[in-house]
Computed example of a mutant assay.
Amino acid sequence: MHNALNVGDLRIRVTEDCLNGRRTAFDDPYKPGRNALVGISQVIEAQSPLDVVILLLGTNDFQSMHPHSAWHSAAGLASVINAVRTAPTEPGMPVPPILLTAPPQLDDPRGPIGPKFAGGDVASRGLSDAIRQVSEDTGCAFFDANSVTTSSTVDGVHLDADQHEILGRVLTPVVADLL
């Protein structure tokens, strides 16, 4: 995505803060440190000033050890948005616009991670609509990844490499508009 955004004198630096198993606002009982709400303020402070923040969270809220609904996940995301906007950045630093990206709908989790996401395909139904509502309520931009891709054809949960490529290409003009 960042190469396509580098036009003329504009040079974009993309900083990723990806973490396997990260949830919106919930702890993982087996892997500590997966709660996005905990620590997001420090990440924003450390990376500021930022021109835009893209949040693509929610899938891991539907691991089988959590009894969450789409509403719970979206409410967790709303908490993350608030933390981004109230991060203790230096005086005068702008609050960046936020792009909420709804992840593709889980589809029959299978393979080695199947048991970890058992029932997640049902529990997560309506997540993109719930995230869209959060975007409206909080004044964030919104993109539904379901409009361009599905979840992994391999495990039914994640994005495969080609799906990441598609999503990056489609998000490029969306991000450009926010810049």
Rank of each mutant, 00 (worst) to 15 (best):
S79G: 15
A102V: 03
M65E: 13
I81N: 04
D121F: 04
M93C: 14
H2V: 01
A130R: 07
D129L: 06
A176V: 02
G76M: 02
A70F: 05
S48C: 00
A102G: 07
L159C: 05
I81M: 04
G126L: 09
T86H: 09
A4H: 11
A161V: 13
D144R: 04
I54D: 01
V43W: 09
T89I: 15
T149E: 11
V148I: 11
A87L: 09
F142R: 03
D28K: 00
V154N: 08
C18D: 12
G168E: 09
V122T: 14
C18T: 12
A102Y: 05
S128C: 13
L10S: 10
P94T: 10
D28S: 08
Y30L: 12
L159S: 07
P29W: 03
R22D: 06
I12N: 00
S79Y: 02
L167Q: 06
G76E: 00
D121G: 11
R125Y: 02
F142I: 03
V38R: 10
I40T: 14
A78H: 03
P67V: 00
V175A: 03
R110S: 14
A36D: 01
E90D: 15
A78M: 05
H72N: 15
T172R: 13
V134A: 08
L179R: 02
S79C: 11
H164C: 10
L5W: 03
L179A: 03
P49M: 01
R22K: 06
T59G: 09
F62D: 01
L178C: 04
S147H: 07
G119P: 07
F143L: 05
V38L: 14
T15K: 10
N3I: 04
A161E: 12
A25E: 02
R110D: 05
T59P: 10
R13N: 14
N60W: 02
Q163R: 12
E90T: 13
V157D: 09
L57P: 04
A161F: 05
D17G: 08
S124D: 09
Q47I: 00
C140I: 02
I131G: 06
I54H: 01
E45L: 12
I12E: 00
A87Y: 06
R125T: 08
G21V: 12
A161C: 01
A102P: 07
D129T: 03
V38Y: 07
G58C: 06
T89M: 14
I81H: 03
H2T: 07
H68D: 04
L179G: 00
L127F: 14
V175N: 04
L5H: 05
E165F: 15
L99G: 03
C140K: 06
H68E: 01
Q42K: 08
A83D: 11
N20G: 09
V7M: 09
D144Q: 06
D129A: 15
L57M: 04
S41P: 04
G120R: 10
D160T: 13
G33T: 05
V157S: 10
R22H: 02
R85V: 05
L167I: 10
G114I: 11
V174D: 00
D155S: 06
V175C: 02
S135R: 07
D155F: 14
W71C: 12
I12T: 14
L100C: 05
